[in-house]
Amino acid sequence: MAGRERLTRASHSGLPEWLGRPGPSAYHRLNPLTKATLATVTAVAAVALGGLVGPALLVIGAVLIPAVAAGVLGRLLRLSLLLALPIAISAFLVNLFFFPGGRTELLRIGPIVATAEGLGFALEILARILAISGAVTLFYLTTRPSDLVLDLERRGVSPRIGFVANASVQAVPAMVERAVQITAAQRARGLDTEGSPLRRARGILPIVGPVILGSIAEVEERTMALEARAFGRPGRRTLLWAPHDTAAEGVVRWLLLAGLLVLVVARLAGVGP
């Protein structure tokens, strides 16, 4: 309730409209740090758990069900598969065909043999990769980077660290847009990006050069603009708005971290499957 009141105040106090705008679902409206903790715990737990069942349950319980609740299942599947597919496919094939100690032959292609042991291990790796990419994607789809930065600043994290985190996330779409414009400018000078793979490869330098140089120049200019507005001033900032948070969410975050710690210690001690 306190959070809702804060949100209402923010939207009527003359602050920018995006500040304090509530998310479209209950999952979106969770505190950014809660969502970040969930994503981290899911990713680390998927590695620590081992086996197939644990990571698979994590994918279902910590990724797919929340994604359905947040209404982002379609985008999550598309994006996380796009992210994970190259690694997942190569890891799956390598483990399927080259698993050391595999004895139960499933398939033979010339000298290469796929084994049942290799298949089992490949599926385990696949489940872990999907859990990690799904957890990260779910966080990305349901959290505005600026909200996380504000929340971290509220908790005493240096604005510089927050800015670096936020700028890194925001730099990706900005660089994509820059690359699109640069590609258009070079194509207008006859660069053939529609021909054979060799022609396309030759077109990389004229695009990558200005993208990188432009990005470096932009970072330098942005830094000077920030310093000109007293960004480097020491001391705490006065925040105009802070993301919604509750005591219950705080408890959940600590429980999740404690659970993860127990799991990691147990695994290190050799307990579990």
Binding site: Q181, I182, A185, A188, P210
Partner: peptide
């Protein structure tokens, strides 16, 4: 076509 921003093409 000459683009507005020269830095988007010089390499």
């Amino acid at each position: 076509l000459v683009f507005q921003d020269p830095d988007r093409q010089i390499f």
